[in-house]
Nucleic acid binder design. Structure first.
Length: 842
RNA sequence: GCCCGGGUGGCGAAAUGGCAAACGCAGCAGACUCAAAAUCUGCCGGGCGAAAGUCCUUGUGAGUUCGAGUCUCACCCCGGGCACCA
C-alpha cells in the first residue's frame, strides 16, 4: 500500500527524469577508457607526439595500508592539470609508478612476517586498484616499479656511471647509525639527532660507506635555482640546505705546549707536515678578538697539540664524547663542555699565543672541524669563555659603545672595529675583505666558501634495496660489475632481518656474494650493502617514457622528445631530499654526455598538506582518511572535486566529511540541467548569461593554469546558479561549455553528459577546451561605487566607459550622495574608470 | 635562535591598493510529504533603526594613501622546516 501511494504521488515527469547515479557512470567510463586506450600511449605514439607535455606526479611508496587521501590529493591535483592541458590539444603523458624499495616496506614486512617479495606485489595490486578507481588519466602502459629487476638494473647502471665519473667513493666515515633500524642514515634522514623513520636516537659509528660526491655540485645546484621555475618556498628550502657561507680560511700556527711545570715551551716539529690549525670563519673581521681556539674532539691535530700535562684529561674527554650519542651531542641548549689541550697557537692578527681547547660544540663534519673563538661576538664562544674564564675582549663597537664598553652579552650587530690595530674604525663589513687580504699577504688566510651540504651516503646495511654493483677482489681491489652482467639480482633470502653486526643481511648469503672477479677470475666477494631508496627515485622520471625498453635505461630519441619534465607537482616534504638528489643525478648524466639538459623539472609546484580535524593525518592520531569509502558513497568525481575545492591547492586545507555535500550537489544540479536532453531549450546564449559564460570560461581557464582549483570550481558553481536562477528552460548552449569546463575535475560525469548531448568519440578525441571572447566576457554596465571621503555612499549601475565628468554627474544626482556633499566644495576627485569615484570634500 | 607559511563569519574559505565575507558547509524558517529523506525557496558577521540608512568589524599597535584584509615598521599568536653550521 505504501509503495503504491508513493508511486501515485510521484509526478510522471519526475519518474522519467534520469537521476544522477555516479557509480555506474564511473564504472562505465573507466572501462571504456581502458578498452579504448584513451589515456595510454604506444611507443610509436610517444615517438610521434606533436605537442609533448610530460605531466609528472610523485610516485608513491605502496604501503600495506593502501592509498590515503593525502596521496589522492597529490595525484588529483596533477591529474586536473594534465586533463586541462590535454583538452587544450597537448599530448599529455601522465605515467605512474611505485617507489617500493626501502626501509619502510622492509620494516613492515618484518612486523607482519611476510617476505617483502610477496608483500610488495600485493600492495602494488591494491594500490593500482585504488588509483584506477579514482579516475586518474594515467598511462598504464608505462609503469615503473623500482623493485623490478628490469628497473633496478638501471639503478645499478646509474651507480656505475657515477663510479666511472669518479663521483662514487668508498670512505671510512663517521656515520649516523640507527640502533633500531640497524642501518646507516644520510644526514638528511636524521631529524634533530633522531632517526627520521623511527625516532630513535642516532649513534655515531665508523663504517666504510659509498658516498656520492654531491658537494662538488653544491654551487651549481645553488646557481640553477635562480632560473628554474619552481615554487619559491621549495627553492628557499634547497638554498638553506646547501647552506653557502662566505668567509675565510685562516691558519693559526701551532706554537707551544705546556711543560710539566705549567710553563710554555717551544712546540715540536709536526709529523703531519701541518704546522697550523686551519679554521673556517664567516667573521674574519673579528679576528683580533679571537682569544682561544676550539677543535672538535675528533680532530686529528689534537694528538699533536696535546701536552703531557693535559693528556689524561683530554683522553678522558674524547672518550666520553665518542660514546655520546648524537642527539645529546647536538642539543643546542645543553651546557657546553671542553678541555684545554695544553697547546697554543698563534693568532696571526695579534701575534699572541692563544690556548687551544677541545669541545663538543665544535663539529668535525662542518668546515675544518676547528674554530677561532671570538667570545665577544659569538653567542656560543661567549658562553664557553664565561664558563672557563677566558678573556672576552670587544672588537666591534655598535652605536653608543666604544672600545672600552664591557660586554655583558655577545654582540653580533652592526658596528666598527675597535681594539683591532690598524683596522680600528673600519665598518665590520669592509673589514672582512680588508683583513682577509692583509692576512693573505703573509699567506695566513684566503677567502673561502663553505657549504653545509654533505656528500650523499648511499650505502644501506639492509636487505630490501638494489645491491650495489661492486665486487671486491683480493688481487684487483674494487671492481665495478660489468654493465653486461647487470642486474645484480637481489636474492630471495629467508632471513632478511638486520642485526647489530652493522653488515647487511646479504653478508650472510655466502652462495650469493662469493663470485669470481670479473677482471682476473680469482676469488672475490660482492658488495653486500644495498643502495638508498632515494637513488631509485633520483632518476625514475627518466625511465617512464622508456619503461618498456630493455636495452637502455632511457631511450635517446624518447628522452630528447619528452624531457625535461614539463610539469612536476608534488609535496613539499620532498623539497630537499628527492628533489635535490634528482637534480644532482641529472647534472651528472649531462656531464658524462648522456643527457642534454641539467635540470630535470622545468616547472615544479608544491601542493599543500591536507589536514583532518586541525592536525596532520597520521596513523598514531587515528585521523587518516581512506578514500575508498567516500568514493563508494559519493563517487570519484565528487570526491575529486571536493579535494580540489576544500582550500587553495598550493596551501592545502581541512578535510571535512560534510564538505563533500557541496560538490556532490553541484554535480547533480549540473546533471539535472542537462537531463533529459530532449527537454533542453535550443536558443542561443545571449545577454547576461552570455557575458557570464564568457567570464566564467576565462576565469576557469586562468585559475586552472595557476592551480587555483578552488576558485575555478567556485566560478563554475556561480555560473550554474546563474543559469538556473534565470527561471527559464535551460538551453543546451548554456551548459554545454560547462560540461567541458568541469571535465578536469569530474571526468566521468563530464564524459557521460557529453555523450548524452550527442557527441561521439569522447571528450579527449579532439581539443575541446572552450574559448572565450574578451569583449563578450565584459559586462556593458558596471555597478559604480561612489565614495565621499573614502566611504561608500552609493552603488549606482552605470554604462561601461563613462568619463570622469559623466560619472561625477551621475553620482551627484544620487540622493544619498547629495546629502553628504550638501553643497560643500569638492576638493579632489579620484576616478577609477568603470569602478569607482571618490569625492573628497572638505 | 634562523628560514618559510599563516592569523578574515559558527566552519572551509574569497577578495589586480578601490563594494570585506564570492563559492560551499553547517544552522534557522518555509514549500512539497501522513511523515522522513531528497529536492526547492528565503534568511544567515555585530550594533542602532519601522525603513531608507548608518556605525563597527580582517591577530595587536603605529605609519603611508583620497582609500589598506592587501603596502611599510614594530609586536603577539599558530603551523612547518632548519639548527652548537663557526
Amino acid at each position: 500500500i505504501r509503495c503504491t501511494k508513493r508511486f501515485t504521488n510521484t509526478p510522471k515527469k519526475q519518474m522519467d527524469k534520469p537521476k544522477y547515479r555516479p557509480i555506474p557512470i564511473e564504472e562505465k567510463w573507466q572501462k571504456r577508457w581502458a578498452d579504448e586506450g584513451t589515456n595510454t600511449f604506444t611507443e610509436e605514439q610517444l615517438q610521434n607526439a606533436k605537442k609533448p607535455f610530460y605531466n609528472l606526479m610523485m610516485f608513491p611508496y605502496p604501503s600495506a595500508e593502501g592509498l590515503h587521501v593525502g596521496n589522492l590529493y597529490a595525484f588529483t591535483g596533477a591529474d586536473v592539470y594534465g586533463r586541462y592541458r590535454r583538452m587544450q590539444g597537448e599530448d599529455v603523458f601522465e605515467p605512474f609508478g611505485f617507489d617500493a624499495f626501502g626501509i619502510h616496506s622492509e620494516n613492515y614486512a618484518l612486523k607482519i612476517g611476510t617476505h617483502p617479495m610477496e608483500l610488495i606485489p600485493q600492495n602494488i595490486r591494491n594500490f593500482t586498484r585504488q588509483v584506477k578507481r579514482a579516475g586518474l588519466m594515467l598511462d598504464w602502459n608505462h609503469v615503473v616499479d623500482t623493485t623490478d629487476p628490469g628497473y633496478y638494473k638501471w639503478t645499478q647502471w646509474l651507480f656505475l656511471q657515477l663510479y666511472k665519473a669518479g663521483l662514487a667513493e668508498k670512505q671510512e666515515a663517521a656515520v649516523n647509525w640507527c640502533p633500531s633500524c640497524h642501518t646507516v642514515l644520510a644526514n638528511e634522514q636524521v631529524i634533530a639527532g633522531a632517526c627520521e623513520r623511527c625516532g630513535t636516537a642516532v649513534e655515531q659509528r665508523f663504517l666504510s660507506q659509498w658516498f656520492f660526491r654531491i658537494t662538488r655540485y653544491a654551487q651549481r645546484l645553488l646557481d640553477n635555482l635562480s632560473w628554474i621555475d619552481w615554487s619559491d618556498t621549495t627553492k628557499r628550502a634547497q638554498e638553506n640546505w646547501i647552506g653557502r657561507s662566505e668567509g675565510a680560511e685562516v691558519r693559526f700556527p701551532i706554537a707551544r705546549k705546556l711543560n710539566a711545570s705549567g710553563d710554555q715551551h717551544e712546540g715540536v716539529q709536526l709529523q703531519t707536515g701541518m704546522t697550523a690549525v686551519h679554521v673556517f670563519t664567516t667573521r674574519p673581521d673579528t679576528i683580533f678578538g679571537a682569544t682561544f681556539m676550539v677543535l672538535a674532539p675528533e680532530h686529528p691535530l689534537v694528538d699533536v697539540l696535546v701536552s703531557e700535562v693535559q693528556r689524561e684529561k683530554v683522553d678522558a674527554y674524547r672518550e666520553r664524547v665518542s660514546t655520546e650519542d648524537l642527539v645529546t651531542r647536538k642539543k643546542t641548549d645543553k651546557e657546553k663542555t671542553g678541555v684545554f689541550t695544553g697547546g697554543y697557537a698563534v693568532n696571526p692578527a695579534t701575534g699572541k699565543n692563544i690556548p687551544v681547547w677541545i669541545a663538543d660544540y665544535v663539529l668535525m663534519e662542518y668546515g675544518t672541524g676547528a674554530i677561532m673563538a671570538v667570545p665577544g661576538h659569538d653567542a656560543r664562544d661567549f658562553e664557553f669563555a664565561s664558563k672557563y674564564e677566558l678573556p672576552i675582549p670587544r672588537v666591534i663597537a655598535g652605536a653608543g659603545t666604544d672600545a672600552d664598553t664591557p660586554l655583558n652579552e655577545p654582540y653580533a650587530g652592526d658596528g666598527v672595529l675597535v681594539n683591532s690595530g690598524e683596522f680600528d674604525g673600519l665598518d665590520w663589513r669592509d673589514a672582512k675583505q680588508r683583513i682577509t687580504a692583509w692576512l693573505g699577504e703573509r699567506n695566513m688566510a684566503e677567502p673561502r666558501i663553505n657549504y653545509r651540504l654533505h656528500d650523499w651516503c648511499i650505502s644501506r646495511q639492509r636487505y630490501w634495496g638494489p645491491p650495489i654493483p661492486i665486487i671486491y677482489c683480493n688481487a684487483c681491489g674494487t671492481v665495478p660489475v660489468p654493465e653486461k652482467d647487470l642486474p645484480v639480482v637481489l636474492p630471495y633470502v629467508e632471513n632478511y632481518k638486520p642485526d647489530e653486526s652493522g653488515v647487511s643481511p646479504l653478508a650472510r648469503a655466502e652462495e650469493w656474494y662469493r663470485v669470481p672477479c670479473p677482471q682476473c677470475g680469482g676469488e672475490a666477494r660482492r658488495e653486500t650493502d644495498v643502495s638508498d631508496t632515494f637513488l631509485d627515485s633520483a632518476w625514475y622520471f627518466l625511465r617512464y617514457p622508456s619503461a618498456n625498453n630493455n636495452a637502455n635505461a632511457f631511450d635517446e630519441a624518447l628522452t630528447k622528445k619528452w624531457l625535461p619534465v614539463t610539469s612536476y607537482i608534488g609535496g613539499e616534504e620532498h623539497s630537499v631530499l628527492h628533489l635535490m638528489y634528482s637534480r644532482f643525478t641529472t647534472m651528472v648524466l649531462k656531464d658524462v654526455g648522456l643527457l642534454e639538459f641539467e635540470e630535470p623539472y622545468s616547472v615544479f609546484r608544491k601542493h599543500g598538506l591536507i589536514i583532518k580535524d586541525g592536525s596532520k593525518m597520521s596513523k598514531s592520531r587515528g585521523n587518516v582518511v581512506v578514500p575508498d569509502q567516500y568514493i563508494e558513497q559519493y563517487g570519484a568525481d565528487a570526491f575529486r572535486t571536493y579535494l580540489m575545492f576544500l582550500g587553495p591547492y598550493q596551501e592545502g586545507g581541512d578535510f571535512r566529511d560534510q564538505g563533500l555535500q557541496g560538490p556532490l550537489g553541484f554535480l547533480s544540479r549540473l546533471w539535472d540541467s542537462v537531463m533529459p536532453v530532449e527537454e533542453m531549450g535550443t536558443e542561443q546564449v545571449s545577454g547576461e548569461i552570455e557575458q557570464k559564460l564568457h567570464a566564467t570560461i576565462r576565469k576557469v581557464t586562468d585559475d586552472i593554469a595557476a592551480l587555483h582549483y578552488n576558485t575555478a570550481i567556485a566560478a563554475m558553481m556561480e555560473y550554474l546558479n546563474a543559469v538556473r536562477e534565470s527561471g527559464r528552460k535551460i538551453n543546451r548552449a548554456e551548459v554545454e561549455p560547462l560540461v567541458l569546463l568541469v571535465a578536469p575535475f569530474a571526468p566521468h560525469v563530464a564524459e557521460e553528459l557529453w555523450e548524452q548531448l550527442g557527441h561521439k568519440g569522447g571528450i579527449y578525441a579532439t581539443p575541446l577546451w572552450p574559448s572565450y571572447d574578451t569583449a563578450k566576457a565584459t559586462a556593458d554596465t558596471v555597478e559604480f561605487v561612489v565614495q565621499i571621503n573614502g566611504k561608500v555612499r552609493a552603488r549606482i549601475p552605470m554604462a561601461r566607459g563613462l568619463s570622469q565628468s559623466e560619472a561625477q554627474d551621475t553620482a551627484l544626482a544620487d540622493e544619498n550622495v547629495r546629502k553628504y556633499v550638501n553643497g560643500a566644495q569638492v576638493r579632489k576627485v579620484v576616478f577609477v574608470p568603470d569602478r569607482l569615484i571618490n569625492l573628497v570634500i572638505g
